[in-house]
């Protein structure tokens, strides 16, 4: 018997690239911020204090106050909650429906495949954000409808990605071997096809997560997302417009929050893509 067997057993952790580390840190900070805001914020985010309105950043209010005297830092922290919850649920909805659809299309082929794929073509024909605007405009504004609207345009993304990855896997020998072992198509999909898709799906999920944050901010900006007084980054940006010359921090800080969160998630996605790429990882 030849060959050296590594005793370590399980998978080794992928070597961390700079983008993975930076993305992970930024994302962790935002998640931590949202979690902390559940129990503590410097001020009550929705507390009005007209006497202190439009204050520039200071020690008392590190990021200043808005027209109603609300603390901007507290609002951004609480706004992170909304962004994260809406984005997570929207991505879960999209993946939860899109992944099974894509897997079904790849496993069955033929007419099923055509119907699923032409439906995603149809969905892609409409600009995503416009679709979300129409859905929330029809169903009424609010966090739940924003989640549904953003989730719906995530479905075709996951359906296509899963189908593409699964089609390649269905041609692999180990799937033929599984069929020779008497497994049904469903069992093969669950046991062999989907586990081999996880890497691409995780990467795509982080990217969709970033897009969902932008989409949520966009919907809130036009007044179709989270409703006041619930703080939200998009809503803060909208309110800041009026004071852009007198109190620029009102626009700068929520804008930075969105930008950095999205940047962090994209870096995380890139880092994960490199780390999970079997061609890079399987250097034996």
């Amino acid at each position: 018997m030849s060959g050296v067997v590594r005793k370590t057993g399980g998978r080794r952790l992928p070597a961390a690239s700079p983008s993975l580390v930076v993305g992970l840190v930024i994302t962790a900070i935002f998640v931590a911020m949202a979690l902390v805001s559940l129990v503590w914020t410097p001020y009550e985010p929705t507390a009005l204090n007209i006497l202190n309105k439009l204050e520039a950043p200071s020690l008392a209010h590190p990021l200043g106050t808005d027209f109603f005297g609300r603390d901007v830092l507290s609002q951004i922290m609480a706004g992170a909650q909304v962004s994260i919850v809406v984005a997570v649920v929207a991505v879960l909805v999209g993946a939860g429906i899109g992944v099974p659809l894509g897997a079904l299309a790849a496993a069955r082929g033929g007419l099923v495949d055509d119907v699923v794929m032409r439906s995603t073509d149809l969905a892609f024909a409409f600009p995503a954000l416009l679709t979300a605007v129409i859905i929330t405009a029809l169903a009424g504004p609010g966090a739940v409808n924003a989640i549904v609207a953003i989730g719906i345009f995530n479905i075709p993304v996951f359906a296509r990605l899963t189908r593409g990855a699964a089609l390649g896997l269905w041609k692999r020998d180990f799937v033929l071997a599984a069929r020779c072992a008497g497994k049904s198509d469903l069992a093969i999909t669950i046991e062999h096809v989907l586990p081999n898709c996880t890497a691409v799906l995780v990467v795509q999920a982080t990217i969709q997560f970033a897009l969902a944050i932008v989409a949520e901010a966009g919907l809130s900006y036009v007044g179709l997302g989270v409703q006041p007084p619930q703080p939200s980054w998009g809503k803060m940006l909208f309110d800041a417009q009026t004071y852009i010359y007198t109190a620029p921090w009102l626009a700068i800080f929520p804008g930075l929050a969105i930008t950095i969160a999205v940047l962090g998630l994209n870096l995380l996605g890139d880092g994960l893509r490199d780390a999970l790429d079997p061609k890079v990882r399987r250097a034996r």
């Binding site: 692999r172 020998d173 033929l176 071997a177 599984a178 020779c180 072992a181 046991e191 062999h192």
Partner: peptide, 16 residues
């Protein structure tokens, strides 16, 4: 009836 394949590199699922 069972089958053994030519290419052992690809006949096993890499993630299990």
């Amino acid at each position: 009836i069972a089958m053994v394949f030519q290419e052992p590199m690809t006949a096993l699922n890499p993630v299990k």
